[in-house]
């Protein structure tokens, strides 16, 4: 591109082209964070449950705390490696949303220990908080799969509050929620990003 003068039509076309190209570039790789959290949560859920089931030792429920540790570490590593040469208002909104969601999600299990309760509220509350995060993100980036996934997860989290499922069944529902709200939309987002970068 040179420092040449443009006519009116060329100027408007250039403005439109630059804005469109910037928007396309921003979409690349944005699903990876959902995949990190989705797969980490499912992995932690499976390992924690197997340990509790086979040992009958409730102390293995502490295994849930591995979720924020692994998730935050993997996310930080990814964000450091990922080239993010452009920052948008949407980035800031999503970032603030997930910091708040992350703090809330980390504090909820602590309540179980402070109040010495049975912890029955922990999984539905965690699910509800995370569903809200997914729903807000979907609405902000206008991505239907995230909105639908977040909405389904939110409904399922209320189902978890109101039914008396066994711990194993609750965990299965919890895992299904992560597949619907994070893993499937995450893969679709990344696929769309790759397709946009090729075209």
């Amino acid at each position: 591109m040179e420092d040449k003068q443009l006519n009116s039509t060329e100027s408007l076309e250039l403005i439109q082209r630059m804005i469109t190209q910037t928007r396309t570039n921003m979409e690349q790789g944005s699903g990876t964070i959902f995949l990190i959290w989705g797969y980490t949560t499912i992995l932690v859920a499976i390992v924690t449950n197997l340990l509790v089931y086979y040992t009958q030792n409730p102390y293995f429920f502490w295994g849930w705390f591995a979720n924020p540790v692994i998730g935050w570490s993997a996310m930080n590593l990814y964000l450091r490696k990922r080239e993010k040469p452009v920052r948008t208002f949407v980035d800031r909104v999503i970032s603030i949303t997930w910091v708040v969601i992350g703090i809330a999600a980390a504090l909820v299990p602590l309540m179980q220990f402070i109040k010495s309760s049975t912890g029955a509220f922990v999984i539905p509350t965690e699910a509800l908080i995370l569903s809200i995060g997914v729903l807000i993100t979907g609405a902000v980036i206008r991505f239907t799969q995230l909105i639908v996934g977040g909405g389904i997860s939110m409904i399922l989290s209320f189902v978890l509050y109101t039914t008396n499922l066994t711990y194993i069944n609750v965990t299965i529902v919890f895992m299904a929620m992560f597949i619907v709200s994070m893993i499937i939309p995450g893969h679709i987002l990344n696929y769309r990003g790759k397709r946009c970068s090729k075209s």
Binding site: I19, T22, N25, M26, V86, R87, T88, F89
Partner: peptide, 26 residues
């Protein structure tokens, strides 16, 4: 009213900030 300066401003109009390398690439 110059191609490059208008492109720079148009790119920045849709974002909060962008790196030099990003603008150079586009």
């Amino acid at each position: 009213h110059s191609e490059l300066r208008l492109a720079i401003v148009s790119i920045l109009a849709g974002v909060e900030s962008a790196d030099f390398s990003y603008i150079k690439g586009i």
